[in-house]
């Protein structure tokens, strides 16, 4: 494996599709393993991928090394999910996969096939905003708005996880989402309001 990933090696474009072995990379616990293929499958070069995003199936042609984040932004033009660092350090790219928050820059699109992916674009029901989106508006939980999709996706999951039961707990569990504009107190107010109304 090691040599597969060394920069400069052309085999970096190959990917061993082994559902159980690599799912850990998503940081999301494997609660519902999909029926795994009998052995590793070698996927090479641009391939047809199919992703279930916001309840819709999207097809795209991308390489195995394409991250979920780049697949969303550059291939599917779902640019609501933001890239702030590409290294799992800022949270701007947070999406839900099977209901759990993950940083979409740290997972490959190919690994997320067959899962339910929710992005910021899929949070509202048509014109009706999700209560978290409403709360962000009401409390001015953002300025430039660039970290906002990630904050909102993280916030929704944070409540679902039961990690927004006190101010301090919520601060701690939201600390993976950086806001350089410094909207933290307002974001906290928004999350806590939604949490307490549930």
């Amino acid at each position: 494996m090691a040599s597969e990933w060394s920069p400069g090696s052309s085999s970096r474009r190959t990917f061993i599709k082994q559902t159980t072995g690599l799912a850990g990379l998503t940081l999301a616990p494997m609660n519902q393993a999909e029926p795994s293929a009998p052995g590793p499958t070698l996927v090479q070069g641009a391939t047809e991928l199919s992703l279930r995003i916001n309840g819709r199936v999207y097809s795209l042609r991308a390489e195995p090394r394409t991250t979920l984040l780049d697949a969303l932004r550059e291939y599917l033009h779902l640019t609501g999910t933001k890239k702030g660092c590409d290294h799992g350090q800022c949270g701007a790219c947070t999406v839900h996969v099977d209901g759990e928050r993950i940083t979409s820059c740290l997972t490959l699109a190919i690994m997320q096939q067959g899962k339910q992916i929710t992005t910021i674009e899929g949070l509202a029901k048509g014109d009706q905003l999700h209560p978290m989106q409403e709360a962000f508006l009401k409390h001015d939980g953002f300025q430039c708005g660039y970290c906002t999709p990630g904050q909102i996706m993280s916030a929704v999951a944070c409540i679902r996880e039961g990690h927004a039961t006190s101010d301090d707990q919520c601060r701690e569990w939201m600390s993976g989402n950086i806001c350089r504009c410094g909207a933290y107190p307002n974001i906290l107010a928004a999350i806590r309001e939604v949490a307490s109304s549930q």
Binding site: T79, G80, T81, L123, L129, F136, F142, G145, P149
Partner: peptide, 16 residues
């Protein structure tokens, strides 16, 4: 704000 919380605001790198 609405565009921002919905992910509909188009930033400079997003004129795809």
């Amino acid at each position: 704000g609405r565009a921002k919380v919905m992910g509909a605001a188009v930033y400079s790198a997003e004129h795809n």
